[in-house]
């Protein structure tokens, strides 16, 4: 592998890593508010991409497709919270897993019925002409993906650190009962976390579709990789989720260079299993690896 190739793999890793980072953030936001792992998180990303494609097919300009897809998935995510999560908040891990797995099945099959089985594409946000960087090339969409990811992460940090409601959400993550005693509406926080998690996932889905296409079945893999990234960084730690996403993306891209593209998707799960084996708290050591 020469330097240009190495750089090329790094670029590709950072692009995919952005998507894993956002998916991992989606997991983390819901987990911190509810201690629930939403097994349909990856399907949210898929639905974001697919609805944007549908809007685009109807002749809507791209920026409006982006917005429309985010709104649709936010509504779906809030619906999921209302129907399948709220009644199970205090009912144990097993029921929560099964209900959200059921939701993933519903989303996936509905997408298959609506859009069919083939992978669909979306045009890049601003043209396809590659830009040369130190011997490697980058498509403009990569810049969009990485740039928007940075914007989203920074905006989230500001929101959670500075705004009153953001602080309320963080309080709920630390101790829901104590937060409620302070007059914070836990229900609102949970609903809001699902909405925000849906919005971030949808954005990830819309951004990656021009690069790697989207089909009804893409969600499962994206969800698994997002979870692997979140675990790698330390489940429950938003900074860890973003770091885990980028590390996973880059390792995966280099793995493709060293091993073979066919095994690309296996790398994330090998990492997930290794993390669980060696250091279940993740690289940045979250507060919350609880034994049952």
């Amino acid at each position: 592998m020469n330097f240009e190739q190495f750089l090329q793999y790094i670029f590709s890793g950072i692009t995919n890593g952005s998507i894993y980072a956002l998916t991992a953030l989606g997991f983390t936001l819901v987990f911190n508010a509810t201690q629930i792992i939403n097994f349909s998180q990856g399907q949210m990303v898929m639905l974001g991409g697919m609805t944007a494609i549908a809007f685009h097919g109807a002749g809507v300009p791209l920026w409006a497709c982006f917005l429309g897809a985010v709104i649709v998935v936010v509504v779906i995510s809030m619906g999921l919270e209302h129907v399948a999560v709220r009644p199970l908040l205090s009912k144990g891990v097993l029921a929560q897993i099964i209900a959200t797995v059921g939701a993933s099945f519903v989303f996936e099959t509905a997408a298959m019925i609506i859009w069919g089985r083939q992978a669909l594409a979306l045009p890049a946000f601003s043209g396809e002409r590659p830009i040369g960087v130190a011997g490697a090339t980058v498509v403009p969409q990569t810049l969009w993906v990485v740039g928007l990811t940075v914007v989203i992460v920074v905006a989230l940090q500001i929101f959670y650190r500075r705004s009153l409601f953001g602080k309320a959400v963080r309080a709920c993550a630390v101790n829901p009962s104590a937060a409620r005693l302070q007059g914070i509406s836990y229900r609102k926080v949970v609903l809001f976390s699902f909405a925000l998690s849906g919005a971030i996932s949808a954005a990830a889905g819309v951004m990656i579709t021009p690069i790697s296409f989207m089909s009804y079945s893409s969600g499962a893999l994206l969800g698994l990789k997002g979870f692997a990234a979140a675990t790698l960084g330390g489940l429950g730690n938003p900074v860890g989720a973003v770091a885990g996403g980028f590390v996973l993306g880059i390792v995966e891209a280099l793995g493709v260079g060293v091993v073979s593209a066919g095994y690309k998707d296996a790398i994330a799960f090998v990492i997930l299993l290794l993390v669980l084996f060696i250091r279940p708290v993740g690289l940045l050591g979250a507060r919350v690896v609880t034994r049952q």
Binding site: F39, I97, T231, G262, Y263, A266, V270, L273, F277
Partner: peptide
Amino acid sequence: VPTLKLRGYYLAMATLGVNEIIYILLVQ
């Protein structure tokens, strides 16, 4: 051994991962 010590969703996710790895191996 590593996952069953942790909370329920770790086993669920790890088994999803194993399923995916085995599927990839069968194809590759």
